[in-house]
Design a protein around this nucleic acid. Sequence first.
DNA 1: CGCAATTAAATTGTACGCAAGTGAATTTTG
DNA 2: CAAAATTCACTTGCGTACAATTTAATTGCG
Lengths: 155, 155
Amino acid sequence: MKAHLAKTMEIPEEEKRLENQLCFAVYSTAHAFTRAYKPILDKVGLTYPQYLVMLALWEKSEQPVKAIGEQLDLDSGTLSPLLKRLEQNGLIKRTRDSRDERQVIVSLTEEGRAMRNELDTIMAAIGQAAGCTLEEMKTIRGLLKGLRSNLASAV
Amino acid sequence: MKAHLAKTMEIPEEEKRLENQLCFAVYSTAHAFTRAYKPILDKVGLTYPQYLVMLALWEKSEQPVKAIGEQLDLDSGTLSPLLKRLEQNGLIKRTRDSRDERQVIVSLTEEGRAMRNELDTIMAAIGQAAGCTLEEMKTIRGLLKGLRSNLASAV
DNA sequence: CGCAATTAAATTGTACGCAAGTGAATTTTG
DNA sequence: CAAAATTCACTTGCGTACAATTTAATTGCG
């Protein structure tokens, strides 16, 4: 009922402005995060998406490409070249699963595992940059998770 | 004082998980938005970043590249090729400013102006997909704006 | 069992993002 | 006023994103 009303209701001009779009708030904040991470991650030689892959691997050090893709919501078209770069940099290795030769198992090298020692420093730095309380973080995270799941199920 | 404490405090393992990162919530929601927009924007032949540029131009139909960049927080390295594509598609035109030949003024063509008629449909569709109330939208938008400004000033 | 459908990863092509560098125009400064 | 510094847009090169296709392996079904 409410949805139907909303659908046929006039959208106020003010809501149509770029700055007032929720999508743009998310889009531009994502870029702001990437830029804030850049100087921090440069020191360890990672890009931001590569850092996300490392986070996944630090949780579980051996995973097929598909599992990583599901956690990051990225397909092999994005991950294949990214993982190739991580491998060239000596942080991971890739081996075909002998049980199922279609799958490639990604695993941490010693160097990749060791890099986790930098995690506290990275998180502290980005926490400073974000400059909001743990409570605020949790609030935003929760709201975004709901939003993301709505958007995903709509497609 | 509180900041100092936070800096030296142990970070709980749970907070180090990919799924619990605020940055990842923002990152993955941004992708979810792009995917939700895709089928809608395909119908009018725009990509999502191109749509953002059109939003800026529907507010003010003649702007230098730099002004667009400031609103979207994008540099000319990103905008130049994007604007070239919008021009090829007949939605905008580009002319050197005669007062300052360094500047390129971007302006809407009739076709570009006319496309604004689709805006209500687009916004209604994405509103449905986001599936949250206007109140929720405003809340998230506000929180993200604060976060974005923190991140930007930290760099 | 045997072939069709499915699955996993990689590849190709297009479009961002962004750093770094180029070249032309304008401002600032000595 | 002229040289130096700055500004603006463009270009180049690298790294994502993602659709669509390809190849190889596995599963399912008749």
